[in-house]
């Protein structure tokens, strides 16, 4: 895109200006604006405390994990509305396995991941093989997974209070794996959840930017027919994208359960929309074929920090919703300008 000679001639200011015109530059601009709001409204200095930023990252980690998986799907020109429900289903199952049945984490985590992958696989099968529109297929999975979550939990939260046959409650200890996930490492500085997010994000980035599969996803999103005629495994690659999204939702579900110390069948409602917003605010096109995880990371931070800043300033709910809407619209509009 940038021609070397041109760039040299333009000088520093010109280069900065050009960078601001690029998708990355625009996304960063939105993030910078949000951070600026934080510096102005710092809530008696709360914004300058390291703990605030640590918490902001921890809070946004679950969304971030969902958004990373969502990016893989959106790049193919699809969408996965089921992630919030899959998160709930996995959190319920994981809590049941570890709290009520006393399974070890080594058995419970793989099974939880498998459940997520199966849900994603079902969506993927419908979209890739049966050519159901992604919106419809994942909308169905969204309802199905939510129903399964309620069925598996009997509509109640799966907590450390276990009901016995006679109706009395027995209290069990919070499983070690919950404690392990909901703690901080590296000198008490990095929440484990954030580390999990970083790992998930890194994996997704590697897959999309450095693996053959990532190329296939971009090609499918950019021009599915051309991809097919170029001999790419279109069905398999698409299917795998939804499986990955389900897997990531399962990871998010485990993190959610660990942080809440329970499995909530109502958890994750609306998370799919937030994850989509993060991807889009970053600048990845909902039409597919354009964007990437670097952009999504900026989107995740933008929305995550926005929430945090509104929260420390105790802005009432109505104001928060309005501001969030305005920011999303503004971020997406600046990106449209570029084309």
């Amino acid at each position: 895109m940038t021609d070397d000679r041109d760039t040299a001639a333009m000088g520093f200011a010109g280069r900065v200006f050009r960078w601001l015109g690029s998708p990355t530059g625009r996304a960063c601009l939105a993030l910078a604006l949000v951070l600026l709001v934080g510096f102005v409204f710092h809530a008696d200095g709360a914004f300058y405390k390291a703990g605030t930023h640590r918490d902001a990252l921890r809070q946004t980690s679950v969304y971030g994990i969902l958004a990373a998986g969502m990016t893989l799907v959106i790049v193919t020109g699809g969408i996965d509305l089921a992630v919030g429900s899959v998160l709930a289903l996995v959190s319920v199952c994981f809590a049941t396995l570890t709290i009520h049945w006393g399974w070890s984490a080594w058995a419970a985590v793989p099974l939880a991941l498998l459940i997520g992958a199966l849900c994603g696989g079902a969506s993927g099968l419908a979209v890739a093989s049966w050519r159901v529109q992604p919106f419809i297929a994942t909308l169905a999975m969204m309802a199905l997974a939510r129903g399964l979550a309620k069925y598996a939990s009997g509509g109640m939260k799966v907590s450390t209070a276990v009901q016995e046959v006679d109706g009395a409650y027995r209290y069990v200890a919070v499983p070690a794996v919950f404690r392990a996930i909901d703690t901080r490492i590296l000198g008490d500085n990095v929440p484990v959840v954030t580390a999990i997010f970083a790992v998930c994000f890194g994996l997704a980035w590697l897959a999309l930017a450095r693996h053959r599969w990532g190329r296939q996803l971009y090609a499918i999103g950019g021009n599915e027919e051309a991809a097919r005629l170029s001999g790419l495994p279109v069905v398999g690659a698409k299917f795998a994208a939804y499986v990955a999204s389900g897997l990531f939702a399962a990871v998010a579900g485990i993190c959610q359960a660990a942080q809440e110390q329970q499995g909530d069948p109502e958890a994750g409602a609306g998370y799919e929309l937030l994850a989509i917003a993060m991807v889009v605010v970053g600048g990845t096109s909902l039409m597919g074929g354009r964007g990437g995880l670097g952009l999504t990371l900026i989107g995740i931070l933008t929305i995550g920090y926005l929430e945090k800043i509104l929260s420390i300033n105790a802005v009432p709910e109505a104001g928060r919703l309005m501001l969030t809407g305005v920011i999303i619209l503004a971020a997406v509009l600046t990106q449209k300008r570029g084309r």
């Binding site: 450095r210 693996h211 296939q216 090609a219 950019g222 021009n223 027919e225 051309a226 170029s230 074929g289």
Partner: peptide
């Protein structure tokens, strides 16, 4: 409509059909 991924680069399109050979073990 069916030959190119227009949003993507020349490198992307020119290597699209040859991905398996250019990415041994899957890594590009």
């Amino acid at each position: 409509a069916s030959g190119l991924v227009l949003d993507q680069t020349i490198v992307f399109n020119a290597t699209l059909a040859d991905l398996p050979r250019l990415s041994p073990f899957g890594w590009r």
